[in-house]
Amino acid sequence: MHLREIERIEAPTRATFLHEYVRAGKPVVIAGGAKGLPQSAWDFDGLSDLVGDVTVPVYDWGASGPTVDDEFVITKMPFAEAIELTRSVTSTEKQQYAVCQLPLEHIGHLAELYRKPSWLEGLDQIDRPALPFRESSRHALFISFHRGIHWHNGRDAVAQLLTGRKRFVLFDPKDSPYLYPRRLADGPKAWFDETEAVFCSEIPFEQGLDAIDRKKYPLFDRTTPYTTELQAGDCLFIPTHWWHFTTAVDPCVVAVEFWDAPLRRWGYPNGRRSLIMKPYRKYLFRHLAGRKAFTRRQEVMERSR
Rank of each mutant, 00 (worst) to 15 (best):
Ile107Pro: 08
Gly46Ile: 13
Val56Lys: 14
Val68Trp: 09
Val51Ala: 15
Glu302Leu: 13
Lys35Gly: 14
Trp243Phe: 15
Val58Trp: 14
Lys282Met: 01
Ser176Tyr: 00
Arg291Met: 09
Arg138Ser: 07
Tyr280Arg: 02
His106Glu: 06
Thr86Cys: 15
Asp156Ile: 05
Ile149Ala: 12
Val300Asp: 12
His2Leu: 14
His106Arg: 09
Gly36Arg: 00
Asp69Ser: 11
Met1Val: 05
Ala111Asn: 08
Glu135Ser: 10
Ile276Gln: 07
Pro251Ala: 08
Arg281Glu: 06
Pro239Glu: 02
Phe171Trp: 13
Gln39Phe: 05
Phe199Val: 12
Ala111Val: 10
Asn153Gly: 08
Glu10Trp: 11
Gln125Ala: 08
His287Ser: 14
Pro27Asp: 01
Ile83Cys: 07
Val56Leu: 13
Tyr59Trp: 11
Asp127Met: 01
Gln231Leu: 07
Gly271Arg: 08
Tyr178Lys: 03
Val256Cys: 08
Leu288Ile: 10
Thr224Lys: 06
Leu110Lys: 06
Leu179Ala: 07
Arg165Asp: 05
Arg134Val: 00
Asp124Trp: 15
Thr246Met: 10
Gly62Val: 13
Leu37Asn: 08
Ala232Lys: 03
Glu257Val: 04
Lys76Thr: 13
Phe237Trp: 08
Asp210Ser: 10
Ala185Val: 06
Ile83Met: 10
Leu236Ser: 04
Glu302Asp: 07
Arg265Gln: 15
Pro117Gln: 00
Arg273Lys: 15
Val58Thr: 09
Ala248Trp: 04
Trp119Arg: 01
Phe72Trp: 12
Phe220Val: 02
Ala248Gly: 04
Lys35Gln: 13
Pro57Thr: 00
Cys235Ser: 04
Tyr280Pro: 09
Pro78Ser: 01
Met1Glu: 06
Ile203Trp: 11
Glu81Asp: 13
Gly233Trp: 01
Lys166Trp: 02
Asp127Cys: 02
Ala157Met: 07
Asp43Lys: 14
Met301Phe: 12
Phe17Ile: 10
Arg134Tyr: 06
Glu121Cys: 08
His106Ser: 10
Lys189Cys: 01
Pro12Cys: 03
Val158Ser: 06
Cys252His: 04
Pro78Lys: 01
Lys76Trp: 00
Cys235Trp: 00
Thr240Cys: 04
Ala293Phe: 07
Phe199His: 12
Asp193Ser: 12
Leu47His: 09
Pro181Asp: 00
Gly33Thr: 00
Gly122Phe: 07
Leu131Met: 06
Gly233Ala: 01
Glu10His: 14
Ala111Lys: 06
Thr90Met: 05
Val254Met: 10
Lys189Trp: 13
Ile238Ser: 03
Glu299Ala: 14
Pro38Phe: 06
Ser144His: 06
Phe237His: 07
Ile212Asn: 12
Arg297Leu: 10
Phe44Gly: 13
Leu3Cys: 11
Leu50Met: 11
Phe245His: 06
Pro239Cys: 06
Glu229Ile: 07
Phe258Ile: 03
Arg4Asn: 11
Thr295Tyr: 15
Ala159Thr: 11
Arg138Ala: 03
Asp70Lys: 00
Val58Glu: 13
Gly46Ser: 11
Phe285Cys: 09
Leu102Thr: 03
Asn153Val: 07
